[in-house]
Computed example of a mutant assay.
Amino acid sequence: MTVPVTTNGINGVSGKHNVKTSHPNPSLQVTADHQIKMVEAPVEEPGPGDVLLHIKATGICGSDIHFWKAGRIGSLVVEGDCILGHEGAGVVLKCGEGVTDLKPGDRVAVEPGVPCEKCFLCREGRYNLCEDVAFAGVYPYAGTVQRYKVHPAKWLYKLPDNITWAEAALLEPLSVVLHGVKTGGLSLGKPALICGAGPIGLIALAAARASGAHPIVITDLEPKRLAFARDFVPGCITYQVDRTLSSEENAQAVRLLYGNTEYSAPSTVLECTGVESSIILGTFAVRRGGVVCVIGVGRPVMNNLPFMHISLAEIDLRFINRYRDTWPAGINCLSGGILDLKKLVTHEYPLEEALEAMNLCSDLSKGSIKVQIVDNVDAEIVS
Rank of each mutant, 00 (worst) to 15 (best):
K56P: 14
I65K: 05
L76T: 06
K56C: 14
S75F: 02
C61M: 06
C61F: 05
H66E: 08
D64Y: 06
P48H: 09
L53R: 13
S75G: 07
V77G: 04
V51H: 08
I55V: 15
D50R: 01
R72D: 00
K69E: 15
A70W: 13
K56A: 13
D64M: 02
R72N: 13
A70H: 15
I73Q: 10
L53Q: 15
V51I: 09
D50V: 06
S63D: 08
T58V: 13
G49A: 07
H54E: 14
G71K: 07
P48Y: 02
K56N: 14
R72P: 00
A70R: 14
G62A: 04
H54A: 10
I73R: 12
W68R: 03
D64Q: 06
L53G: 12
H66F: 03
I73D: 10
K69C: 09
S75N: 09
G59S: 09
D64P: 00
A70Q: 15
A57T: 14
G59Y: 12
P48W: 10
R72F: 01
G59D: 13
R72A: 05
W68E: 05
G71V: 04
S75A: 09
F67H: 09
H66M: 00
L76M: 10
I73A: 08
V77L: 02
G49S: 12
L76S: 12
R72L: 00
V78T: 05
V77N: 02
L53D: 12
L52K: 06
C61D: 04
K56D: 10
L53V: 14
S75V: 09
L52H: 03
V78H: 04
K56Y: 08
A70P: 00
L76D: 10
L52S: 02
I65F: 04
A70L: 15
I65L: 11
S75Y: 01
G71C: 09
V51P: 11
I65V: 13
R72M: 07
W68H: 06
A57Q: 12
F67A: 02
G49C: 05
V77D: 00
D50K: 00
V51C: 10
T58P: 10
W68C: 04
I55K: 14
D50E: 15
G59A: 11
G74S: 07
T58G: 06
P48K: 08
K69G: 05
H66L: 00
T58A: 14
I65C: 00
G71A: 08
D50P: 11
A70I: 12
W68S: 03
I73H: 05
G74E: 10
D50I: 01
S75R: 05
I60T: 07
G62I: 07
F67Y: 15
T58D: 15
I65R: 08
K69L: 13
V51M: 03
L53H: 15
L76K: 11
I60A: 09
P48L: 07
I55H: 14
V77K: 04
R72S: 13
K69Y: 11
A57Y: 01
W68F: 07
F67P: 04
F67K: 02
